[in-house]
């Protein structure tokens, strides 16, 4: 296996934690994994991205260049990195935050809205996003991912995050057989 994953959005969405969880679960599953990140000086609100590479061989260059998976949680992230999605790569967007302008490859999910509806405003969308990814294209075992999530999220939020992850998996699975949705999916 060799997969390059980019998770991009803005600070506060928890994407670096999501990248860490994914990489840690991959290692627990016996793979090699490298996680890197890039963010502006702001802790919140600025552009933020996490890269994860999962492989069965040594990983040399640690940053994602041609993404097999790209999760975009802001329009800015989508616009900036869409061109680096590998042909046939998996593109997941938050349908409420990103307008893919007719991009037929985009798998649109209402991640943030679903998180807010179920868990309130303070919960970041990161763990549910991992669930969506897991539902669409499992890279590591669900059990390892759940174990890692439990170890990496704040202790008081473990139950909520487990629920968010499972909900995300459902959303992801539901998308598998659907054709990719246009941007106005939200209005349907």
């Amino acid at each position: 296996m060799y997969k390059e994953i980019r998770l991009a959005g803005s600070g506060g969405q928890g994407l670096i934690t999501a990248g860490v969880i994914l990489a840690e679960a991959a290692i627990a599953g016996g793979h090699e994994a490298v996680q890197t990140q890039s963010y502006g000086p702001e802790a919140r609100g600025g552009a933020s991205r996490a890269d994860v590479i999962i492989s069965d061989e040594d990983i040399l260059y640690p940053k994602a260049r041609k993404f097999d998976i790209f999760l975009a949680l802001t329009q800015e992230a989508y616009d900036k990195f869409r061109a680096d999605l590998a042909p046939g790569g998996l593109l997941i967007i938050d349908g409420d935050l990103v307008d893919p302008a007719g991009d037929l490859d985009a798998k649109s999910v209402h991640i943030t809205a679903t998180v807010r509806k179920n868990f309130g405003d303070r919960m970041p969308p990161n763990v549910m996003a991992l669930g969506v990814l897991q539902g669409l294209m499992p890279l590591v075992s669900e059990r390892k991912l759940l174990e890692t999530i439990k170890g990496r999220v704040p202790p008081k939020t473990v139950d909520k995050n487990v629920k968010a992850f499972k909900l995300g998996v459902k959303l992801g699975k539901a998308l598998i057989d659907q054709p990719a949705a246009p941007s106005n999916e939200a209005d349907l």
Partner: peptide, 9 residues
């Protein structure tokens, strides 16, 4: 910075 912030096995 890359090595300092990078996570790996």
């Amino acid at each position: 910075e890359v090595v300092g912030h990078m996570r790996e096995k």
